[in-house]
Amino acid sequence: MTRRLPWALDARADAPFPPAETALREPDGLLAVGGDLTPVRLLNAYAGGVFPWFSDGQPLLWWSPDPRMVFRTDGVHLSSRFRRSLRASPWVVRADTCFAEVIAACATSVRPGQDGTWITDAMREAYVALHRMGYAHSVEVFEGERLVGGIYGVAIGRMFFGESMFSAASGGSKVALAALAHRLAQWGWPLIDAQVENDHLPSMGGEHWPRERFLALVREQVRRDAPVGSWAMEFGEMAAAVLANQES
């Protein structure tokens, strides 16, 4: 039997993606190859439940796995022990004050079981461009002036697509994710896309959703009205200690 190949993307940046439901089963979720990382292409991809994931030396690869790892914004869990440690924490959380630093830290973080990073220089430039347009955002955890953790991703409508997070101090990424979820829940945003599972996400409340369920919610949420632009003022400054009172 002939093995089906992923779609080859049209050279036009605004060309539509193939339906995410047509992604390959092996490797899980590989949908398309080629194209570019222009803002219009990236926004079209995310709105269709698709994201880029490739390494230096590979062609651009586009994915929509089944199932999908997600967090309900009211469902991020921090352990009781960790929440107790936050009660006296001096950390504060802000948004969109140092996006380039967050993505750089994510790109250079050493991750067990991974050789190198998928956040290539081209990826960094593309997401910084989306940030300047008001579509990509970072949530940052500070101890004084030191950046100790963060997360970044893409927002379309009222849907947040998480890309990567990092810790420069133990628990920094957990606080960034929990603070993001807390604020998005207050804003009425229901879901954070976490793309694929790693060892830590299920313990924090990550859920496996069938792709069909995920895509149905994405298609609804990306059509909802939400301001485009910096989150710095709307997000404000949140004391990490606030998260100690969240139910686990």
Rank of each mutant, 00 (worst) to 15 (best):
P16C: 06
L61S: 03
P27L: 07
R94P: 02
M69H: 05
D36S: 14
Y46I: 09
A45N: 02
V40W: 05
G34H: 09
T97G: 02
Q58A: 07
G113A: 15
W62I: 04
T73A: 12
V70W: 06
A15M: 09
R41M: 04
M69S: 10
R87H: 10
R68S: 11
V76S: 01
A15D: 06
A20Y: 00
H131P: 09
R94C: 15
G29I: 02
D74K: 08
A15V: 01
T97R: 12
V70L: 11
Y127E: 03
T38V: 10
G75I: 09
D121N: 07
D115P: 11
M123C: 10
G57S: 14
L78M: 08
V110C: 13
A100Q: 06
A104E: 11
R87P: 02
P90M: 12
T108K: 04
L43A: 07
F71T: 06
W53M: 08
L37R: 01
S80N: 12
S109K: 12
D74G: 13
E26G: 10
L61C: 05
T108C: 11
Q114R: 15
F51E: 06
S80G: 12
A20E: 05
N44K: 01
H137M: 14
M69Y: 06
L30A: 10
V110I: 14
M123E: 05
